[in-house]
C-alpha cells in the first residue's frame, strides 16, 4: 500500500535532494480546521500528479502579512527575515501557495528583504497542470453541469492581476461558471483583508461578508468557489448568516479539482 507523501525540506536536504517547488502552506492551511482540508486536497493532487515538492513543516512561520497591514512593520520584518533565512538556506527557487496573502507577500515584498523566488498561486499551478494534461479530470463528478460562481480575492485579483487562472480551473470541471455583479477588477472584498480577519469590524450597518454572500446567492449558483483561506472563512460565515448552508457550498479550487479526480 502506498500512502500520500508530505516530505519536508529538512528531510529532503538530509537525503541531498532538492524539490522543484516549495509548497508554502500558510497559517490557515496549517491550523484552521476547515481549511486544513484544502491543504490536504492540494497535497493529494501534487502526489497524484507526481510533482516534486516539499513543505517547510514546523520550520514555516507566518509571512507577517497581517502584522504589516496592521502597521507593525517590525514584527512583519522579523517574520519575513526569519522565513527568508530558512528558504535561502534550502536554496528555494520556486514557491507555490494556496493563500493569496502569502503569495503577495512572498512574491512582492520578500525581494526587498533578500528573498527572491518564483512565486505562483495554486490557481495558476493547477491551471498549468490542467493545460499540460497532467491532471486527469473526469468531468463527470459532483460538479458536472452545476452553476458555480467564483469570488475574486483582492490579493489575487486587484493586488496581482490574477483573474483568469482560477476561472480556467473552474471551467475545466465542465460546470457553468456564473459571475457575480461585482467581479474581476470590480470584485467586492470578503471583508477579511488588511488584517480585518483578526479583529471585529468597525461600527457599520452591515458586515462585508454578508453583503458579498448576498451577491453570490443572487447568481443562483450551487457552489461558491474561492482561492483564499480568509475568503473561505468569511463567505462560509456569510452563508451561515443567511441560513443557506443546505443550498450552497463554499469550496476552494483545490478541493474541487481533488473531488473531480476522485481523491
Amino acid at each position: 500500500m502506498s500512502t500520500y507523501k508530505v516530505p519536508t525540506m529538512a528531510e529532503m536536504a538530509g537525503k541531498g535532494e532538492t524539490p522543484e517547488v516549495l509548497f508554502w502552506v500558510g497559517c490557515a492551511g496549517s491550523f484552521d480546521e476547515r481549511y486544513k482540508a484544502v491543504t490536504q486536497a492540494f497535497v493529494k493532487i501534487l502526489n497524484k500528479v507526481g510533482v516534486s515538492f516539499a513543505v517547510l513543516g514546523p520550520e514555516e512561520a507566518c509571512t507577517g502579512d497581517p502584522a504589516r497591514r496592521a502597521g507593525n512593520e517590525f514584527l512583519f520584518q522579523m517574520q519575513a527575515v526569519a522565513n527568508i533565512q530558512v528558504m535561502n538556506g534550502y536554496e528555494v527557487k520556486k514557491v507555490v501557495t494556496a493563500c493569496p496573502h502569502c503569495f503577495n507577500t512572498i512574491k512582492n515584498e520578500y525581494p526587498a528583504l533578500g528573498g527572491n523566488y518564483e512565486v505562483i498561486h495554486h490557481s495558476q499551478f493547477l491551471q498549468q497542470l490542467i493545460n499540460e494534461g497532467k491532471v486527469a479530470l473526469k468531468g463527470g463528478g459532483e460538479f458536472k453541469g452545476k452553476k458555480i460562481t467564483f469570488h475574486d480575492s483582492c490579493y489575487l485579483g486587484r493586488a496581482n492581476d490574477v483573474y483568469e487562472a482560477p476561472r480556467d480551473v473552474i471551467k475545466a470541471l465542465d460546470v457553468e461558471l456564473v459571475e457575480m455583479k461585482r467581479c474581476r477588477t470590480k470584485g467586492l472584498c470578503c471583508g477579511a483583508g488588511g488584517a480585518q480577519m483578526f479583529k471585529e469590524p468597525e461600527p457599520g450597518k452591515k458586515d462585508i461578508n454578508v453583503e458579498r454572500t448576498e451577491e453570490a446567492l443572487a447568481t443562483g449558483a450551487q457552489a461558491i468557489a474561492v482561492g483564499c483561506p480568509f475568503c473561505l472563512t468569511m463567505i462560509t460565515d456569510g452563508v451561515k448568516n443567511k441560513e443557506k448552508e443546505a443550498e450552497i457550498k463554499v469550496y476552494d479550487l483545490a478541493e474541487m479539482i481533488a473531488k473531480d479526480m476522485g481523491i
Binding site: S2, V6, T8, F31, K36, T39, Q40, V55, G262, I263
Partner: peptide, 15 residues
C-alpha cells in the same frame, strides 16, 4: 503543531 495537518493525509492510501 504546525505540521499536524499532514498526519492524516500521510496515513491515507493513495488512490
Amino acid at each position: 503543531d504546525r505540521f499536524n495537518w499532514a498526519e492524516k493525509v500521510k496515513e491515507e492510501e493513495m488512490k
